[in-house]
Amino acid sequence: MTNPPVRHYSLLIAPMVIIMGAVIGWPLIRTLMLSFTDATMMGLNPISFVGLSNFQKAFSDSGFISALKISLIFAVSVVTIEMMLGTTVALLVNEPFKGRNILRALLILPWAIPTVVNAIMWRLIYNPEYGALNSLLTQMGLIDSYISWLGNPDKALVAIIFADVWKNFSLVALIALASLQSLSSAQMEAAKIDGANAIQRFGYITLPHIIPSLQVALVLRIIEAVKVFDIIYIMTKGGPANKTRSGSIFVYQEAFTNSRMGSGAAFAVIMVSLIVILILFYMRILMKKK
């Protein structure tokens, strides 16, 4: 293929480069610059260069370390559960049974509900006084007294994980199902004739076929989960006792609420580096396999 004889094709990508650069590129560079200063939101004092001290403080800040841990625990938990649940559900609705098409259609419902609405819906369900969960569990005789699901430091993160799984398992299920539907039945029949049992057919045909799609879902979900902000912020604002404060929420509070821009920027730079390392590491493993 010869390149089209257009000299000024850079002009065609210019709008995209300008938008991405103005909204993300330049502010990101500014963040990097701020991370070496003691700037505050109000800007009353003259900004001075403080070298690496923000970074030194960040690595010894127990609040920041625990926020990173919470992001990691959240991401690993939701992604693992969503991948397993989503794949299982896809395999289920790929089987022939009555009402299968209705179930397939409804699978998109959790995904389509806005994140904010999902968070609020579960907050109402978890309500300590009049929540549906407390009422249901009491009526079933499973608990004696109402529980403050989101107000309890040991339960809040689990409750949020459960809420996130409800919305996002459906994305995994939809992607896995689309892949299962493109599996040729001829191949399955041939394997059956060759005497492969159900487990062998799953391991040698079904699974290898859907793995590329599952990897796409996995990358999408990991990236979204390590950045988590909205669902936690709306359900608990990071509380109780900071037990649900993720990395993103920590950075937000430091920069916007406490108006410490310099150190907030340093936290952000560290977080971005960790995410990029994580994703590149994962991509590397994928590439090697291929």
């Binding site: 993300i24 502010p27 990101l28 963040t31 920069a255 920027a265 952000a268 977080m271 990029v276």
Partner: peptide, 10 residues
């Protein structure tokens, strides 16, 4: 991959 908090303030 970038969390929006990383550049939201500038």
């Amino acid at each position: 991959m970038l969390p929006p908090v990383a550049y939201a303030l500038p």
